[in-house]
Write a protein that binds this DNA or RNA. Structure first.
Length: 515
RNA sequence: CGGGGCGUAGCGCAGCUUGGCUAGCGCGCUUGGUUCGGGACCAAGAGGUCGCGGGUUCAAAUCCCGCCGCCCCGACCA
């Protein structure tokens, strides 16, 4: 039930301000940005071309990084025999509640209705993959004989299905797109190094491409991936102060090698189980992107992920001006394209320039260039940034806009995109810093999360799983991660005592509400 | 699965309480014209199994029964 917030019904429904209703704002940004929509299937979404283009850019960046670290892509089946999934007990138990199950393979017509043919029951049900460890390791068994076959470094881009009870566009849908890396190693140490290496890839990607600052750390046993010995993660903070898990990297030990019986002959001629990792990020990252950078005008994209870097809007009053401004815009577009930029010329007729501005802003295009008759006369271009770091006492819209001599303007675009990329990361860092706090007592903790500006609480913790649940019940918070040493800000360093139990604690953890 | 809400044109809704003319409005869409430096205007159009199935009635979007679907809030999760 989206509510109209525009008093003037003649105007299109704008984006609900963040401050008014954050959840609705998120949905509005997606809608106005033309990123995705609900489908006919409950819990599933349609990723529209603009949203998919962003995902494609993420894929490209990630895939390059995977290749650079020695990985190759492959593809494994969507369906997993039930017995295969069941082999690794903890893993199977972890996913049991959210598996789609295929039980029949044929339809038939009864009295004009198309129904499932009861005679087509499968001997063994198939599970739609919630993740592919089991099916992949069933193959690895045949691929790995010797230490010479290791390491095996494979990634796949795929869809997976997890039958969640409640869904949100991009953040949690029944079907989603992701990549899953599955590697096999001869030694524990090598596998653990891989787990950390890929977490670093994710962290680098998050900060340098998504412009989302992340905390790297380790999940507590209760939050660990089903079947893993260790789960590492990157955690981001959204604009409502909630944490979002943006990627995970798991050290699986020999669990899957044992359940799939994958052994290799080492240099000493002895048979050993191989050591495994798996790691993944999903289309959830699009949600992270939206919730980190976007504003009340709609989507804001870091230039490195923007499907369109620059949109050109010609402004004209008559056919003559139309011809001349479009001609100039076409030239400018060509010059920008030759710099490797992605450029869109919006020469649609019958739409007011202002309407175009709103539309492309809602879609997150970083830079707009307006070209009107005055620019033709002066040999100038009007360059407008999608966002600007506000300056006290100055009109933001004016601040975003600059009139530059043509050549100067064209030369300025790439540096400006770089600047904007940097500013987004910096802005997000500052926001996170502002919404992070060191807390030492449970009373203080309670007050903090009772307020409207809660974010990350750095607290000492020595509790167990049950006590984590207690915290969740009382405050709706969870331990997002046990951060690595280099992630801990100066003011949060040092040992102390657990916020709940008072037991000694070597370091602080990050607690927050989470998506 | 528990609690709440909603299904009427592509989107957002009114109409239902108290059954009745040809089912309406805004946005969007099409065509023509005037416009165009921050969401244009005028005119003429196109577009509907009123979620589905029964029932009551001379007559159902409206009343009754059954079903289906979606959204929101909670218990699970990338």
């Amino acid at each position: 039930m989206s509510q109209k917030i525009d008093s003037n019904p003649k105007q299109p429904v704008a984006v609900t301000p963040r401050a008014q209703d954050y959840a609705q704002w998120y949905l509005d940004v997606i809608k106005r940005g033309d990123l995705a929509e609900h489908s006919l299937v409950r819990g599933c979404m349609v990723i529209k071309p603009h949203g998919y283009a962003i995902w494609e850019k993420m894929q490209r960046e990630l895939d390059d990084r995977f290749k650079a670290t020695g990985h190759v892509n492959a593809y494994f089946p969507l369906f997993i025999p039930l017995s295969l999934l069941a082999k690794e007990e903890k893993h199977a138990a972890g996913f049991a509640k959210e598996c789609a199950v295929i039980t029949h393979h044929r339809l038939t017509t009864v009295d004009g209705d198309v129904v499932v043919d009861p005679n087509s029951k499968l001997e063994e049900p198939l599970i739609v993959r919630p993740t592919s460890e089991t099916i992949i390791w069933a193959q690895y068994k045949n691929w790995i004989q010797s230490y010479r076959d290791l390491p095996l470094l494979i990634n796949q881009w795929a869809n997976v299905v997890r039958w969640e009870m409640r869904t949100r566009l991009f953040l949690r849908t029944t079907e989603f797109l992701w990549q899953e890396g599955h590697t096999a190693h001869a030694t524990e140490q090598e596998a653990i190094e891989e787990t950390f290496r890929m977490l670093d890839v994710y962290a680098d990607f998050a900060e340098n491409v998504l412009a989302v600052p992340v905390i790297t750390g380790r999940k507590t046993p209760g939050e660990r991936f089903a079947g893993a010995l260790d789960t590492l993660c990157i955690e981001g903070m959204m604009q409502d102060g909630k944490a979002l898990q943006m990627g995970t990297s798991h050290y699986l030990g020999q669990n899957f090698a044992k359940s799939s019986d994958v052994m290799f002959l080492n240099k000493d001629g002895q048979r050993e189980y191989v050591y495994a990792t798996s790691w993944g990020v999903s289309t959830r990252l699009v949600g992270a992107l939206i919730m980190t950078h976007s504003d009340d005008n709609g989507l804001v994209l870091p230039p490195k992920l923007a499907p369109i870097h620059v949109v050109l809007v010609p402004i004209f009053k008559n056919d003559d001006e139309k011809a001349r401004t479009i001609e100039e815009a076409t030239k400018v577009a060509a010059e920008l394209k030759s710099q490797g930029l992605s450029v869109k010329l919006d020469d649609r007729d019958g739409i007011m320039p202002g309407a175009k501005y709103y539309e492309w802003e809602a879609k997150g295009v970083p830079i707009r260039i307006e070209i009107g008759p005055k620019d033709l006369e002066k040999g100038s271009l009007c360059v407008v940034r999608r966002f600007v770091i506000p300056v006290e006492g100055q009109d933001e819209r004016k601040l975003r806009k600059q009139f530059l001599p043509r050549a100067e303007a064209i030369a300025a675009i790439k540096p400006l995109l770089d600047t904007m990329q940097r500013e987004l990361l910096e802005r997000a860092r500052q926001f996170r810093a502002k919404r992070s706090v060191v807390i030492n007592t449970i009373e203080e903790f309670e007050r903090y999360f009772a307020g409207n500006d809660a974010g990350f609480a750095w607290v000492h913790w020595a509790g167990d799983h049950a006590q984590e649940d207690e915290m969740a019940r009382r405050f709706e918070t969870s331990i997002r991660c046990v951060p690595f040493a280099d992630q801990i800000p100066a003011e949060a360093q040092g040992a102390g005592s657990c916020i709940l139990t008072g037991q000694p604690s070597a370091q602080r953890v990050v607690m927050a509400r989470a998506y």
